[in-house]
């Protein structure tokens, strides 16, 4: 099932993929078991001449154990899933590592605007780099983003990074990522934002440190 996923290029992407895989195996096994019992009953107890149905109202604790025990097991597995996914969520959405690169992302009908700190590493200074739909980041660097929306709700969606976060007008939402592989990757909008929602498309360029410095130099000057 993970074969369908686009290649993961972020440090935390494996965590998400792992959670999805764990859930897949757990609920997959349960699904097959329950459907198996259902279809077994359907075939085994199909109408046959001279074989009457039994009377079982399921009103005693003993009988009800047949539904309570699996239900309690499900609760246990569910809590296990919850316990397994919590650290991944916390790492991605609750922690904010010290940034090596900062970028302000603004969703606007129907483009992604990026304002990146220039060589001084600070936003809102003269050497800021403003781009539209093109984001360039160095590999293996913790990139912190401030996500804003200029008009309606958008959602920053970079499948290869396993990054998705709604951009809400009136709020500044901070987050981070660290890319682990050079290349060019798609950026999209995942929240319906109007007629151009489907063409709100950008590119993420992950460069090695040398190329990144060259890009930075060329862009600023």
């Amino acid at each position: 099932m993970l074969g369908w996923f686009p290649e993961n290029i972020s440090t935390y992407g494996h965590g998400i993929d792992h959670v999805i895989q764990v859930i897949y195996y757990i609920v997959g096994a349960w699904f097959l078991l329950v459907e198996g019992v259902l279809f077994y009953f359907l075939i085994r107890y199909r109408k046959k001449k001279g074989v009457p149905a039994v009377y079982e109202p399921g009103s005693t604790w003993k009988a009800l154990l047949w539904v309570f025990i699996p239900a309690v097991l499900i609760l246990g597995f569910d809590l296990g899933i919850d316990w397994a996914q919590a650290p991944v969520w916390d790492e991605i959405k609750l922690s904010l590592p010290l940034p090596e690169q900062v970028v302000r992302v603004t969703g606007r009908q129907f483009v992604w605007e990026f304002v990146q700190a220039g060589p001084d590493g600070k936003l809102d200074t003269a050497d800021d780099i403003a781009t539209v739909n093109q984001l360039t980041v160095p590999i293996h660097a913790k990139v912190q983003f401030e996500l804003l929306a200029a008009d309606v709700i958008h959602s920053l969606w970079i499948p290869n990074l396993r990054l998705k976060q709604d951009a809400v007008p009136g709020r500044t939402i901070k987050g981070w990522f660290e890319a682990t592989k050079e290349g060019t990757y798609p950026i999209a909008c995942a929240e319906l934002c109007g007629s151009g929602h489907g063409v709100m498309k950008g590119e993420l360029h992950v460069l090695n440190p040398v190329d990144y410095q060259r890009w930075l130099h060329e862009t600023v000057h």
Binding site: V37, L38, F41, L42, R46, A53, V54, P70, I74
Partner: peptide, 18 residues
Amino acid sequence: AISLFSFIATLWGGSIEF
């Protein structure tokens, strides 16, 4: 889950007509 399992358990020992 309890409700769905109860519905499945209802089929147990039945005389099911499709």
